[in-house]
Design a protein around this nucleic acid. Structure first.
Lengths: 171, 171
DNA sequence: TATTGTTATACTCTATAACTATA
DNA sequence: TATAGTTATAGAGTATAACAATA
């Protein structure tokens, strides 16, 4: 990501014909976003960007995405789920889940086994290697979550989760 | 988006060889996401997905994206900013801002005027038509924000914004 | 030399449609 | 007929690099 900080205030007063540019003020704190940052949607987007970038940096060593991590958790705790169920649980498309699991299978962390009950579907299991990797990932993710709680500076994580879940519910 | 609801519980107990599929349980409430939904990052992602989809539906008539709306707000309240400053304010890449403003200019809602102070840069202004459109958009966005506050069911929007902003701050 | 706007490229994610093999 | 997995495709968004004009 960009990792930018707003440094300019600029914006001339009225000129409707020819205009000015942004003043390169050295280290101005923030500036008037003039309202957009008062919207819940905007605040969520900025937070999500920051949190996912942080996740990417902490997981760079393993080159694992948030989606891949979630699938691994789900596969370990609900062995034998099919791809459609995994996709629905995480709010992804089944076609996307195919690619995610393709990669996890290629890395040897999950197995796709043919189902005996429904020969169209494939049951997903975490391999021994997958469980090992997942344990390492979980320590990192737990550390990130603790770091985020620290950022909350005394505010209640449970209240945050409750609010976010209420916003996430389909209308 | 997918607008999915988890309907299966499934997942057989141990079978390491051949496996089962997900049971098509009719209307099971939710099921064990077994932990991922206890992470702040996961909760933020799901909320962001839901809120942005809702935004898209409410703005379908105008075919305006969240980024375009934010640029219009910023351009109205800070007339004459250049593209780099707009990009930094919204956490976007300058190359992305070019495309966003290309489209806004094509629709006649913003003007790109040459700067007299720095002939490399272009000052962005909302047109009269842009201001008119923005007023209509703002009513819709305000309505969406009110709808989200309702979803909070008594929880404090200010607390939510404060927490999200703290999470969004670059480490 | 550095910066602004721009173009181009690539990769991820999202969204659909279509196909196959099953059911 | 419908469903699971898959493939293909197209569109957003993200991230980089490079270039011209200008500073």
């Amino acid at each position: 990501m960009a990792r930018t900080r707003l440094t300019a205030r600029a914006a001339e007063a009225k000129p409707r014909a020819v205009a000015s540019a942004a003043a390169p003020a050295p280290a101005t704190p923030d500036l008037s976003l003039a309202g957009v940052d008062g919207f819940i949607g905007y605040a969520i987007r900025r937070a999500q960007l920051s949190v996912f970038q942080d996740f990417g940096e902490r997981m760079a060593e393993f080159a694992i995405s948030t989606a891949q991590f979630s699938v691994m958790r789900l596969a370990r705790d609900n062995p034998g789920l099919n791809q459609r169920t995994l996709a629905e649980a995480l709010g992804a498309e089944t076609s996307r889940m195919v690619l995610i699991i393709d990669e996890l299978e290629r890395r040897g962390v999950v197995d796709r086994l043919p189902s005996t009950l429904d020969r169209r579907s494939r049951a997903i299991y975490l391999t021994a290697e997958g469980r090992k990797l997942l344990r390492r990932l979980e320590r990192r993710v737990a550390a990130q979550d603790r770091a985020m709680v620290k950022r909350l500076r005394g505010d209640d994580k449970d209240a945050l989760l409750r609010m976010l879940r209420n916003l996430a519910k389909p209308l």
